[in-house]
Amino acid sequence: MADAARSDSPREDTWRMGDRSFASRLLVGTGKYRDFDETRDAIAASGAEIVTVAIRRTNIGQDPGEPNLLDFLSPDRYTILPNTAGCYTAVDAVRTCRLARELLDGHNLVKLEVLGDEKTLFPDVPATLEAAKTLVDDGFEVMVYTSDDPIIAKRLEELGCVSVMPLAAPIGSGLGVRNPYNILEIVENAGVPILVDAGVGTASDAAVAMELGCDGVLMNTAIAGARDPVLMASAMNKAVQAGREAFLAGRIPRKRYASASSPVDGTFF
């Protein structure tokens, strides 16, 4: 991996999830943008290959010519990752995933989230475990949003999830990685890709997640809510790559006291 990072093309540093391989380690959501043009431009600037979408009722009785998100984000170009956002029960989450699979012609990669509380949007972990098991048994490839609990992360991996995605902080909070030692513990024990999902506020937060050894970062609000979403998408693209390279390069240990960079010998004063 380190050799790949040193080569001319950092894009050779790919990551795998199930049978799929990706170059970009930034995954982005499509919510909260001003319009589909801004969505498309921000996602292009992010360099993301995997983009999340939500599944909602079609507006009956509206203009049949109304543009559709997937007209702007072609499933031929992007790996579409339908989410179960807004689901508070395992049953609703499973139902949403089945509709998504039908919508996307049998595409079976999903982002599972079962929420437990409207104020924090923290996951309902027991319900998440239940839904994950049902979905894996039903042939889905499950990327799962969860708490930053290392034991639960391992359980979800053991259930057959293709990726485990602990939160950095509450969804949309922009607080950054609140519990780096838990994320580190999850990363070090993982046999599947670990992506930080939710809570990133700015580029340095994404870099921190990557420096901890995460395989990638998934975000939406940090980009869509920025004053200039397209510029922030570009910043996040670079931050994720920078954090990845720093992780591969191996940072120096933290020390309390100074260590001079210039030689002590040979001074003439």
């Binding site: 959501g29 919510g31 939500a54 009722r57």
Partner: peptide, 10 residues
């Protein structure tokens, strides 16, 4: 009957 489609989401 439910008829659904993809919308923006994170």
């Amino acid at each position: 009957v439910e008829v659904v489609h993809a919308v923006g989401g994170g």
